[in-house]
Amino acid sequence: VQFKHVVTCEDVLQLQEDEKEVTLFRVHIDLGARWVVLPESKVEGGSEEKEEENIKAVIEATFLAEYLIEGEPGQKALDAFALKNASIHVWPYWREFLMSQSMRMNLPKVALPAVQFASNNRESAGDQD
């Protein structure tokens, strides 16, 4: 089983609600799992050839997490929040969705960890404060 977990984009929206301005922060998270039969290496004429992956099933979802913002936290803080916190908030829903869909499709059971961070959540030592 191969997994996908990427924070794809984030938006800040300003809405007017009953003469009051509301600011929303939206984070889009792509999640997925696919069941594949890995290729076997073949040696023909001294060179190594690989067969293509044989994909048996794919389950994917895009989650949208919305947050109310008070004040102006700044773009750097919003970026950090999107990468480090939004995934934690949607993860239980993804786990349940993946397990229920895989059972309905009669696929092997997949036990996901209690929490996982997005694969694009990479920080270098210079980025840390």
Rank of each mutant, 00 (worst) to 15 (best):
E60Q: 09
S47V: 15
V37W: 05
T23Y: 04
E60P: 00
G46W: 03
A57R: 00
A57V: 04
K56G: 07
A33Y: 06
L38E: 15
E17G: 02
E48M: 15
N54D: 14
L31R: 02
A57H: 08
E53N: 05
Q16C: 04
A57T: 00
V43A: 10
T62H: 04
D30C: 04
K42I: 10
N54C: 10
Q16I: 12
E52L: 15
K50H: 13
W35H: 09
H28F: 15
E49W: 09
T23W: 06
P39A: 10
A33I: 06
L24D: 08
N54T: 14
A33D: 06
K42R: 12
S41A: 15
G45S: 10
Q14W: 07
E40K: 15
L31S: 06
Q16V: 10
G45M: 07
I55H: 05
G46Q: 03
E44Q: 13
V36T: 06
T23G: 03
E52C: 09
R26P: 01
K20P: 04
N54Y: 10
L38F: 11
S47D: 08
S47T: 15
A57K: 01
E17Q: 15
G32W: 00
G32R: 01
I55W: 02
T23P: 00
V58K: 06
D30Y: 04
V58N: 06
E21W: 07
A33M: 09
G32I: 00
E19N: 14
N54S: 13
A57I: 01
G45N: 15
G32L: 01
R26A: 10
E21S: 12
T62E: 12
E44R: 12
N54F: 10
S47G: 01
V27Y: 03
V37M: 10
L15D: 07
L31E: 02
V37E: 13
